[in-house]
Amino acid sequence: MTKLWSTAEVPSQAGRVAIVTGANTGIGFPTAQVLAQRGATVVLAVRDLEKGKRAAAAIAGTAPGAQVVVQRLDLTSLDSVREAAGELRDSFERIDLLINNAGVMYTPKQLTQDGFELQFGTNHLGHFAFTGLLVDRLTETPGARIVTVASIAHNIRAAIHFDDLQWSRSYDRVAAYGQSKLANLMFTYELARRLSAHGSPALALAAHPGISMTELMRNSPAVFRLGMSLFGRLFTQPAEQGALPTLRAATDPAAVTGQYYGPNGFRELRGAPVAVRSSRQSRDEDLQRRLWAESERLTGVIFPV
């Protein structure tokens, strides 16, 4: 029988610097916690500094001697993204791991500070810009990885609406979330290809947590929340389990660029982390390139690869 991958498989991270966005809650917290327990210097890149400090203290309590740093990062503001990236570049000569984990889900119609639809602006454009501003540090660091957290929702009523990326004409919060998660995968695949073409050994990978019970679910449609209350034990998993695909993408020595990890159970809802396959649409290289160009235009961040 094949051994199931668990946190016991995470190798030593001593000497490595890992940045995890949204690490004060959800699957980001156990992701950061395990990396710190394995010896990494972990940066909790969070919007709320007080919550970040409490999370850092909780992690330090389970990982004696761990180096846990809190960095303010508001992905709904490109000014904040640029400020955070600049401060991190000043603080660290090397960055080994960037885990683009933070996100919002099924929110009512709102705009970011830069006028982007909130889910697309936070989940995709904020992380796109943040990665672009740090990517040269990663390409200079041997063994570096960029892991972006996607979702099985990239299959649910999802498309990249190039004619109305910001949903200004009408708004469907489920479809808007699907667009943002589809964009996460397209970004990962295009980044992996560009890094390889650039001759960089840095890896770009993606992961999804299945259905994990976190506060991200708070804006879900009522019928979905009802289903989870009735059948949640059958189809969901705790945040610690949901973090495993991200941790495998970030640390498994056998992982290769462009890989996508998710749970191995029924419809990838829960289970142990394995390599999975995303939708055909997500792997359309023409769409990936078009989204990349539009993302550079919208954010003003041009990647050096």
Rank of each mutant, 00 (worst) to 15 (best):
A272F: 11
T246S: 14
A254S: 15
A239G: 05
D252W: 09
A254G: 01
T257S: 14
Y261V: 04
P263S: 14
G265L: 02
D252P: 04
V256D: 06
A254C: 07
A249Q: 10
L269Q: 14
V256C: 06
Q259R: 01
G258P: 02
A255E: 03
Y260I: 00
E268K: 04
D252H: 06
T257H: 00
R267E: 15
A254K: 15
A250Y: 11
Q259T: 10
A243I: 11
V256Q: 15
L244N: 03
T246N: 04
Y260F: 13
A255N: 00
G265C: 01
L244G: 04
Y260H: 11
R270H: 15
L247P: 15
T257E: 02
D252V: 04
A254W: 10
T251M: 11
A254M: 09
N264E: 01
A239W: 12
L269C: 11
A243R: 02
E240I: 03
T246K: 04
L244F: 07
R248W: 07
E240C: 00
A239F: 09
L244S: 01
N264Q: 06
A250W: 08
Q241T: 01
G262E: 08
A272G: 04
P238V: 08
Y261I: 08
P263N: 15
D252A: 14
Y261E: 11
P238N: 05
A243W: 05
Y260V: 10
L247C: 13
G265W: 05
L269A: 11
R270F: 04
T251Q: 12
G265S: 06
T246M: 05
A239I: 00
R267F: 15
G242K: 08
Y260M: 09
D252Q: 10
F266G: 01
A255D: 04
P238E: 14
P253Y: 13
P238C: 13
A249M: 05
G258I: 02
G242Q: 12
R270C: 00
P263V: 07
T251E: 10
R248L: 07
A249S: 12
V256F: 01
P253Q: 12
E268T: 06
T257N: 02
F266P: 08
G262F: 06
E268A: 10
P263C: 07
A239R: 00
L244M: 14
G242L: 06
G262R: 04
L269R: 15
